[in-house]
């Protein structure tokens, strides 16, 4: 975002603005810069209090860490594209002037406001038990019950489905962006004999590319930090198949009391997220420009 350059009104000191954002300056020092620096330093301290990269070396060779990293990537890779696709599709459906469309918009939005609310987590836990609602419904269409909690290949999908069900927040952002596309573009396309599918690929998608990218980044950052749902729903099991990096950090800190490792891993996670975001930026650079 470019900030417009203009002069302050007459009689207003150039420090008035600074004074107004003072809360943020203090907040940034206390809650962004300080924790950032502090966690890096603590992450360098090993068990004997010496500074060095021992923690990082130990983490890298810990097969538990490698598993949580793999789980985190797998989870992100499944969830994010699915969630973006579903939210965009539903936003397209909702982007019309039908009677009562507002009711649907609200209904689709409700799950996302509940987020990690413990009550929703509890509900989700019940839905996927061996004789829970999901398996009962699968039974109706003739599919044998799935052992969601017992199967290391399937347990992660309990979490993926929960977050997918909460696609509303992403959908609303898409919906707002769809409204901003000038109608003239579609009229012009129609005059040129362009069908609706063609119009989607040649008008809608290119117009949305920046918003798609923003949603992609936001969702990736959120997914890579996932903690609440696996912690509460599956406890990381079975066999660590749903244990995310977030859970690894939590366990190191609050179960094993290893502050150095916990901070080092949170820095690793931060770097991983940063790296993924930069990679996404690079990979989509051409697509976004064309």
């Amino acid at each position: 975002m470019k900030s417009r350059i203009y002069r302050n009104p007459v009689g207003v000191s150039r420090f008035t603005g600074l004074l107004l954002i003072l809360p943020f300056i203090i907040g940034a020092i206390l809650f962004i810069i300080y924790p950032f620096v502090c966690s890096f330093i603590v992450g360098l301290k090993d068990g004997s209090g010496d500074l060095g990269f021992d923690n990082y070396k130990n983490i890298m060779s810990d097969s538990n860490y490698r598993q949580t990293a793999a789980v985190t990537f797998k989870y992100t890779a499944f969830l994010v594209p699915l969630k973006l696709a579903v939210s965009l599709l539903v936003a397209l459906l909702l982007n019309c002037e039908l009677k009562g469309i507002g009711i649907f918009r609200t209904a689709f939005y409700i799950p996302s406001i509940l987020g990690s609310n413990l009550a929703v987590i509890i509900m989700w836990q019940y839905l996927f038990t061996s004789n829970g609602l999901v398996n009962q419904l699968l039974g109706v269409i003739g599919i044998a019950p799935v052992g969601w909690y017992g199967d290391p290949d399937k347990a992660i999908f309990i979490i993926v489905l929960l977050r997918l069900w909460e696609f509303g927040s992403t959908m609303v952002i898409f919906l707002a962006a769809l409204r901003d596309i000038p109608n003239e573009l579609y009229y012009a396309a129609k005059v040129d004999g362009c069908g609706s599918i063609k119009a989607f690929f040649h008008i809608t998608l290119p117009q949305l590319k920046n918003i798609i990218f923003i949603n992609l980044v936001l969702q990736t950052i959120a997914a890579m930090q996932e903690f609440n749902a696996p912690y509460m729903i599956t406890g990381g099991g079975p066999l660590g198949s749903t244990r995310t990096i977030g859970m690894y950090i939590y366990d190191e800190m609050f179960r094993y009391g290893d502050e150095g490792t916990a901070n080092a891993v949170s820095w690793l996670l931060f770097t991983l997220i940063g790296a993924v975001v930069i990679l996404l930026y690079r990979f989509t650079e051409k697509l976004r420009r064309d």
Binding site: F36, S39, Q225, S266, L269
Partner: peptide
């Protein structure tokens, strides 16, 4: 853009 998990420990 900063993950909250990084700040929670400090």
């Amino acid at each position: 853009l900063m993950p909250s998990i990084v700040t929670v420990m400090p």
